[in-house]
Protein backbone atom coordinates (compact mmCIF):
# COMPACT_ATOMS: atom_id res chain seq x y z
CA UNK A 1 0.00 0.00 0.00
CA UNK A 2 1.35 3.41 -0.90
CA UNK A 3 1.57 5.66 2.08
CA UNK A 4 0.95 9.24 2.94
CA UNK A 5 4.50 10.32 2.17
CA UNK A 6 4.44 8.99 -1.34
CA UNK A 7 1.14 10.62 -2.09
CA UNK A 8 2.46 13.90 -0.75
CA UNK A 9 5.54 13.78 -2.90
CA UNK A 10 3.37 13.08 -5.90
CA UNK A 11 1.12 15.94 -4.98
CA UNK A 12 4.02 18.34 -5.04
CA UNK A 13 4.69 17.50 -8.66
CA UNK A 14 1.37 18.90 -9.80
CA UNK A 15 2.72 22.29 -10.65
CA UNK A 16 6.01 21.27 -12.16
CA UNK A 17 6.61 21.41 -15.88
CA UNK A 18 5.27 18.44 -17.75
CA UNK A 19 8.68 17.23 -18.90
CA UNK A 20 9.74 16.35 -15.36
CA UNK A 21 7.18 13.57 -15.15
CA UNK A 22 7.21 10.64 -17.53
CA UNK A 23 4.10 9.96 -19.55
CA UNK A 24 2.47 13.12 -18.30
CA UNK A 25 1.53 15.98 -20.57
CA UNK A 26 -0.16 19.25 -19.93
CA UNK A 27 -1.14 21.11 -23.06
CA UNK A 28 -2.97 24.40 -23.47
CA UNK A 29 -5.54 24.75 -26.23
CA UNK A 30 -3.18 26.22 -28.80
CA UNK A 31 -1.28 22.95 -28.60
CA UNK A 32 -4.23 20.71 -29.35
CA UNK A 33 -2.85 19.54 -32.62
CA UNK A 34 0.35 18.33 -30.95
CA UNK A 35 0.76 14.59 -31.29
CA UNK A 36 1.81 12.59 -28.28
CA UNK A 37 5.26 11.34 -29.22
CA UNK A 38 5.14 8.55 -26.69
CA UNK A 39 4.01 5.09 -27.79
CA UNK A 40 2.27 4.63 -24.49
CA UNK A 41 -1.46 5.06 -24.60
CA UNK A 42 -2.51 7.87 -22.31
CA UNK A 43 -5.71 8.69 -20.56
CA UNK A 44 -6.85 11.88 -22.20
CA UNK A 45 -8.49 14.54 -20.08
CA UNK A 46 -9.99 17.67 -21.58
CA UNK A 47 -10.46 20.71 -19.34
CA UNK A 48 -13.15 22.83 -20.94
CA UNK A 49 -13.08 26.61 -20.70
CA UNK A 50 -10.99 27.08 -17.53
CA UNK A 51 -10.84 30.87 -17.92
CA UNK A 52 -14.57 31.15 -18.49
CA UNK A 53 -15.84 28.70 -15.88
CA UNK A 54 -13.37 29.94 -13.32
CA UNK A 55 -14.88 30.19 -9.85
CA UNK A 56 -14.79 28.38 -6.50
CA UNK A 57 -11.25 27.04 -6.93
CA UNK A 58 -12.42 24.73 -9.71
CA UNK A 59 -8.93 24.36 -11.18
CA UNK A 60 -8.07 22.31 -8.10
CA UNK A 61 -10.16 19.50 -9.58
CA UNK A 62 -7.79 19.19 -12.51
CA UNK A 63 -4.79 19.28 -10.16
CA UNK A 64 -6.47 16.55 -8.13
CA UNK A 65 -7.02 14.33 -11.17
CA UNK A 66 -3.48 14.95 -12.36
CA UNK A 67 -2.03 13.89 -9.02
CA UNK A 68 -4.25 10.88 -8.75
CA UNK A 69 -3.09 9.73 -12.20
CA UNK A 70 0.46 9.95 -10.90
CA UNK A 71 -0.46 8.06 -7.77
CA UNK A 72 -2.26 5.32 -9.64
CA UNK A 73 0.37 5.15 -12.37
CA UNK A 74 -2.03 6.09 -15.13
CA UNK A 75 -0.24 7.76 -18.05
CA UNK A 76 -2.22 10.92 -18.71
CA UNK A 77 -2.41 13.85 -21.04
CA UNK A 78 -4.45 16.86 -20.04
CA UNK A 79 -5.40 19.58 -22.49
CA UNK A 80 -7.19 22.84 -22.01
CA UNK A 81 -9.74 24.27 -24.39
CA UNK A 82 -9.76 27.96 -23.61
CA UNK A 83 -11.97 29.72 -26.10
CA UNK A 84 -15.62 29.12 -26.90
CA UNK A 85 -14.85 29.21 -30.61
CA UNK A 86 -12.14 26.51 -30.34
CA UNK A 87 -12.90 23.17 -31.98
CA UNK A 88 -13.01 20.39 -29.39
CA UNK A 89 -11.46 17.05 -30.29
CA UNK A 90 -14.19 14.88 -28.78
CA UNK A 91 -12.73 11.81 -30.39
CA UNK A 92 -9.47 12.33 -28.50
CA UNK A 93 -11.00 12.94 -25.06
CA UNK A 94 -11.73 10.17 -22.56
CA UNK A 95 -12.73 12.49 -19.74
CA UNK A 96 -14.14 15.98 -20.20
CA UNK A 97 -14.36 18.27 -17.18
CA UNK A 98 -16.17 21.61 -16.83
CA UNK A 99 -15.21 23.14 -13.50
CA UNK A 100 -17.50 25.51 -11.59
CA UNK A 101 -18.49 28.66 -13.42
CA UNK A 102 -21.01 31.46 -13.25
CA UNK A 103 -24.63 30.72 -14.19
CA UNK A 104 -24.42 33.83 -16.33
CA UNK A 105 -21.83 32.19 -18.61
CA UNK A 106 -23.75 28.93 -19.02
CA UNK A 107 -25.73 29.98 -22.17
CA UNK A 108 -22.49 30.84 -23.98
CA UNK A 109 -21.03 27.44 -23.14
CA UNK A 110 -24.22 25.70 -24.27
CA UNK A 111 -24.09 27.59 -27.58
CA UNK A 112 -20.46 26.58 -28.08
CA UNK A 113 -21.14 22.91 -27.35
CA UNK A 114 -24.31 22.85 -29.45
CA UNK A 115 -22.19 23.83 -32.43
CA UNK A 116 -20.43 20.46 -31.99
CA UNK A 117 -23.44 18.49 -30.88
CA UNK A 118 -22.95 15.51 -33.23
CA UNK A 119 -19.44 14.94 -31.90
CA UNK A 120 -20.63 15.39 -28.33
CA UNK A 121 -23.38 12.80 -28.80
CA UNK A 122 -20.89 10.36 -30.31
CA UNK A 123 -18.68 10.96 -27.26
CA UNK A 124 -21.58 10.20 -24.93
CA UNK A 125 -22.48 7.02 -26.84
CA UNK A 126 -18.99 5.68 -26.15
CA UNK A 127 -19.82 5.98 -22.43
CA UNK A 128 -16.95 8.37 -21.98
CA UNK A 129 -16.90 10.62 -18.91
CA UNK A 130 -18.31 14.12 -18.87
CA UNK A 131 -18.39 15.84 -15.50
CA UNK A 132 -19.52 19.32 -14.54
CA UNK A 133 -19.71 20.63 -11.02
CA UNK A 134 -21.15 23.71 -9.37
CA UNK A 135 -23.27 25.91 -11.59
CA UNK A 136 -21.54 24.50 -14.67
CA UNK A 137 -23.86 21.51 -14.24
CA UNK A 138 -26.60 23.63 -15.77
CA UNK A 139 -24.90 23.16 -19.14
CA UNK A 140 -25.97 19.50 -19.04
CA UNK A 141 -29.59 20.22 -18.05
CA UNK A 142 -32.75 20.21 -20.12
CA UNK A 143 -33.63 23.74 -19.19
CA UNK A 144 -32.41 26.71 -17.14
CA UNK A 145 -34.93 29.24 -15.88
CA UNK A 146 -33.36 32.56 -14.98
CA UNK A 147 -34.72 35.10 -12.51
CA UNK A 148 -35.04 37.68 -15.27
CA UNK A 149 -37.53 35.45 -17.11
CA UNK A 150 -35.16 33.92 -19.66
CA UNK A 151 -35.59 30.20 -20.28
CA UNK A 152 -32.55 28.58 -21.89
CA UNK A 153 -32.41 25.08 -23.34
CA UNK A 154 -29.43 23.13 -22.07
CA UNK A 155 -27.68 20.23 -23.74
CA UNK A 156 -30.28 17.85 -22.33
CA UNK A 157 -27.72 15.22 -21.38
CA UNK A 158 -29.20 14.98 -17.88
CA UNK A 159 -32.93 15.19 -17.31
CA UNK A 160 -33.08 18.11 -14.93
CA UNK A 161 -34.45 21.63 -14.75
CA UNK A 162 -32.55 24.45 -13.09
CA UNK A 163 -34.35 27.44 -11.59
CA UNK A 164 -32.26 30.37 -10.43
CA UNK A 165 -32.83 31.12 -6.75
CA UNK A 166 -33.65 34.52 -5.29
CA UNK A 167 -30.88 34.07 -2.77
CA UNK A 168 -27.67 32.08 -2.62
CA UNK A 169 -27.38 29.04 -0.36
CA UNK A 170 -23.96 28.13 0.99
CA UNK A 171 -23.12 25.33 3.39
CA UNK A 172 -21.16 22.14 3.82
CA UNK A 173 -22.42 19.01 2.11
CA UNK A 174 -22.10 15.27 2.68
CA UNK A 175 -23.28 12.87 0.01
CA UNK A 176 -23.42 9.12 -0.34
CA UNK A 177 -22.59 8.26 -3.95
CA UNK A 178 -22.27 4.98 -5.86
CA UNK A 179 -18.78 4.49 -7.16
CA UNK A 180 -16.08 1.96 -7.91
CA UNK A 181 -16.77 -1.71 -7.95
CA UNK A 182 -14.70 -4.79 -8.64
CA UNK A 183 -14.85 -8.37 -7.43
CA UNK A 184 -14.09 -7.39 -3.86
CA UNK A 185 -15.43 -3.88 -3.53
CA UNK A 186 -18.69 -2.27 -4.45
CA UNK A 187 -21.18 0.14 -3.04
CA UNK A 188 -21.13 3.74 -2.10
CA UNK A 189 -18.56 6.20 -0.82
CA UNK A 190 -18.93 9.43 1.07
CA UNK A 191 -18.35 12.63 -0.83
CA UNK A 192 -17.60 15.68 1.33
CA UNK A 193 -17.34 19.33 0.38
CA UNK A 194 -19.15 22.64 0.20
CA UNK A 195 -22.08 23.88 -1.78
CA UNK A 196 -22.82 27.33 -3.16
CA UNK A 197 -26.21 26.95 -4.73
CA UNK A 198 -27.57 29.72 -6.95
CA UNK A 199 -30.30 27.53 -8.46
CA UNK A 200 -32.68 24.80 -7.39
CA UNK A 201 -32.43 21.59 -9.40
CA UNK A 202 -35.39 19.33 -10.13
CA UNK A 203 -34.68 15.90 -11.57
CA UNK A 204 -37.21 14.59 -14.09
CA UNK A 205 -38.78 11.19 -13.62
CA UNK A 206 -36.28 8.42 -14.18
CA UNK A 207 -33.23 10.66 -13.79
CA UNK A 208 -30.88 9.19 -11.21
CA UNK A 209 -29.14 11.53 -8.77
CA UNK A 210 -25.38 11.50 -8.34
CA UNK A 211 -25.90 10.68 -4.70
CA UNK A 212 -28.14 10.98 -1.70
CA UNK A 213 -27.77 13.64 0.94
CA UNK A 214 -26.47 12.79 4.36
CA UNK A 215 -26.14 16.49 5.21
CA UNK A 216 -26.75 19.65 3.22
CA UNK A 217 -29.15 21.10 0.73
CA UNK A 218 -28.16 19.30 -2.45
CA UNK A 219 -30.47 19.84 -5.41
CA UNK A 220 -33.43 21.33 -3.59
CA UNK A 221 -33.23 20.39 0.09
CA UNK A 222 -33.05 17.37 2.32
CA UNK A 223 -35.97 14.99 2.77
CA UNK A 224 -36.45 16.36 6.28
CA UNK A 225 -36.84 19.86 4.83
CA UNK A 226 -39.30 18.83 2.14
CA UNK A 227 -36.73 18.46 -0.63
CA UNK A 228 -35.89 15.42 -2.71
CA UNK A 229 -32.83 14.50 -0.64
CA UNK A 230 -30.97 14.13 -3.93
CA UNK A 231 -27.63 15.54 -4.88
CA UNK A 232 -26.58 16.02 -8.48
CA UNK A 233 -27.49 13.82 -11.41
CA UNK A 234 -25.84 10.97 -13.22
CA UNK A 235 -26.47 9.04 -16.43
CA UNK A 236 -23.80 6.42 -16.90
CA UNK A 237 -20.61 8.47 -17.00
CA UNK A 238 -22.22 11.87 -17.45
CA UNK A 239 -22.17 13.50 -14.04
CA UNK A 240 -23.33 16.69 -12.41
CA UNK A 241 -22.60 17.34 -8.76
CA UNK A 242 -22.83 20.56 -6.80
CA UNK A 243 -20.01 19.51 -4.48
CA UNK A 244 -17.14 22.00 -4.34
CA UNK A 245 -14.03 21.76 -2.27
CA UNK A 246 -12.49 21.18 -4.82
CA UNK A 247 -14.39 17.94 -5.31
CA UNK A 248 -11.42 15.96 -6.63
CA UNK A 249 -8.88 17.03 -4.01
CA UNK A 250 -11.15 16.55 -1.03
CA UNK A 251 -12.46 13.23 -2.28
CA UNK A 252 -9.53 11.18 -3.57
CA UNK A 253 -11.60 8.01 -3.77
CA UNK A 254 -14.02 9.68 -6.13
CA UNK A 255 -11.10 10.88 -8.26
CA UNK A 256 -9.63 7.37 -8.25
CA UNK A 257 -13.00 5.88 -9.17
CA UNK A 258 -13.43 8.23 -12.11
CA UNK A 259 -9.92 7.59 -13.42
CA UNK A 260 -9.85 3.83 -12.91
CA UNK A 261 -13.16 3.35 -14.69
CA UNK A 262 -12.01 5.52 -17.57
CA UNK A 263 -8.64 3.76 -17.82
CA UNK A 264 -10.32 0.36 -17.75
CA UNK A 265 -12.85 1.41 -20.38
CA UNK A 266 -10.15 2.77 -22.70
CA UNK A 267 -7.83 -0.20 -22.23
CA UNK A 268 -5.05 1.82 -20.61
CA UNK A 269 -2.44 -0.13 -18.72
CA UNK A 270 -1.99 0.89 -15.09
CA UNK A 271 1.54 0.31 -13.82
CA UNK A 272 1.70 2.32 -10.61
CA UNK A 273 -0.34 0.19 -8.24
CA UNK A 274 -1.57 -3.36 -8.30
CA UNK A 275 -5.18 -4.43 -8.36
CA UNK A 276 -4.81 -5.47 -4.72
CA UNK A 277 -3.61 -1.99 -3.81
CA UNK A 278 -6.50 -0.42 -5.68
CA UNK A 279 -8.87 -2.57 -3.68
CA UNK A 280 -7.12 -1.42 -0.52
CA UNK A 281 -7.59 2.19 -1.56
CA UNK A 282 -11.31 1.62 -1.47
CA UNK A 283 -11.47 -0.54 1.62
CA UNK A 284 -8.89 1.09 3.88
CA UNK A 285 -8.29 4.65 2.82
CA UNK A 286 -6.90 6.01 6.06
CA UNK A 287 -3.28 5.21 5.31
CA UNK A 288 -3.03 6.28 1.71
CA UNK A 289 -4.99 9.48 2.11
CA UNK A 290 -4.35 10.43 5.69
CA UNK A 291 -4.83 14.17 5.38
CA UNK A 292 -7.92 13.85 3.25
CA UNK A 293 -9.41 11.33 5.66
CA UNK A 294 -8.71 13.52 8.66
CA UNK A 295 -10.19 16.50 6.87
CA UNK A 296 -13.35 14.52 6.12
CA UNK A 297 -13.64 13.37 9.73
CA UNK A 298 -13.26 16.95 11.05
CA UNK A 299 -15.88 18.29 8.72
CA UNK A 300 -18.26 15.38 9.23
CA UNK A 301 -18.08 15.99 12.98
CA UNK A 302 -18.90 19.65 12.35
CA UNK A 303 -21.82 18.69 10.11
CA UNK A 304 -23.16 16.28 12.73
CA UNK A 305 -23.18 19.18 15.19
CA UNK A 306 -25.25 21.16 12.70
CA UNK A 307 -27.78 18.39 12.08
Amino acid sequence: MKGFNIFNSIRAKANRKSDSISNISLIRSEGQTKVNSSEIKTLNILWLYPDIMNIHGGRGNIMGLFNMCNYLGIPVEIRRVDRLEDRIDWNWAHIVYITAGELNCVPSVIDALNRQKDDLEAFAKLNRTLIANGSSGAVLADEIRYKDGRVIKGLGLLKMIWTERDSVWGDDIWVSADVYSNEEVSGSIEVIGNQIQVADVELSEGQEPFGRLVYGRGNNGSLANGGSGFEGARRKNIIYTCVLGPLMTKNPLLAADLLLKAAEREGIEIKGVTGKEITEIFTDNTEGFELESKSAECIKTFMKEKM
Binding site: I52, R80, C105
Partner: peptide
Protein backbone atom coordinates in the same frame (compact mmCIF):
# COMPACT_ATOMS: atom_id res chain seq x y z
CA UNK B 1 2.89 29.87 -19.21
CA UNK B 2 1.25 28.13 -16.32
CA UNK B 3 -1.03 25.26 -17.32
CA UNK B 4 -3.21 25.56 -14.23
CA UNK B 5 -3.58 29.34 -14.20
CA UNK B 6 -6.98 30.74 -15.00
CA UNK B 7 -8.11 34.16 -16.07
CA UNK B 8 -11.75 35.26 -16.10
CA UNK B 9 -14.64 35.51 -18.56
CA UNK B 10 -15.18 38.75 -20.43
CA UNK B 11 -18.28 40.33 -18.85
CA UNK B 12 -19.45 41.37 -22.31
CA UNK B 13 -18.96 38.27 -24.51
CA UNK B 14 -17.79 35.54 -22.06
CA UNK B 15 -14.62 34.66 -23.99
CA UNK B 16 -11.43 34.73 -21.86
CA UNK B 17 -9.99 38.04 -20.73
Amino acid sequence: DDFFSVSMPCPKCHEPI
